[in-house]
Amino acid sequence: MPDLGKYAGDVLMAYGVTFLLLAGLIWRSLARSAKVKRQLKAAEERKSHG
């Protein structure tokens, strides 16, 4: 790990926040994808039975 000197806390906090935001975005995207897939499947079933 490089020597960050007196800015180590700020830099590591920035990395931490960045990784948390990225993880949140990925989680939200996956959750939205699953929801849309369920809605599409339900719509296809309604269409085939209707």
Rank of each mutant, 00 (worst) to 15 (best):
F19I: 13
S48A: 14
R28K: 08
E44T: 00
P2H: 05
G16I: 02
S29M: 14
R38C: 08
K6L: 15
E45W: 00
L20I: 08
V17R: 09
R32G: 05
K37T: 01
L25Q: 10
V11I: 15
F19C: 14
M13N: 12
R46H: 04
A8V: 05
R46Y: 02
K41H: 03
T18M: 13
G50L: 13
A23S: 07
L4F: 05
G24M: 07
K35N: 08
A42S: 04
L21F: 08
G50V: 09
V17I: 12
L40K: 12
Q39G: 06
Y15E: 13
K47H: 09
S33T: 10
S29Q: 10
M13G: 06
V36R: 04
A14D: 11
L25F: 08
I26K: 07
S33I: 09
L21Y: 02
E44D: 01
R38W: 01
K35E: 13
A23W: 00
T18V: 11
G24N: 05
L4E: 08
M13H: 08
S33R: 13
P2F: 09
L25K: 04
A43V: 00
P2K: 09
E45C: 01
L25E: 11
E44G: 01
S29K: 06
R32Y: 05
G50E: 14
L30R: 06
G50F: 09
A31T: 13
A31M: 12
L30A: 13
G50T: 12
D10C: 08
L4N: 07
G9R: 09
Q39V: 05
L30E: 09
K35V: 06
H49W: 10
V11T: 04
V36A: 09
G9E: 14
V11K: 03
W27D: 11
L12R: 07
L4I: 04
D3K: 01
A14T: 06
F19N: 14
A8N: 06
G9T: 13
K37M: 04
G24H: 01
L40G: 07
K35I: 04
A42Y: 00
A34M: 10
A42M: 02
M1V: 10
L40A: 15
L20K: 02
E45D: 03
W27H: 09
Q39T: 05
A8G: 09
G16D: 07
F19W: 06
R46F: 03
W27R: 11
K37E: 08
D3V: 02
L4V: 06
A43P: 02
W27F: 14
A31P: 07
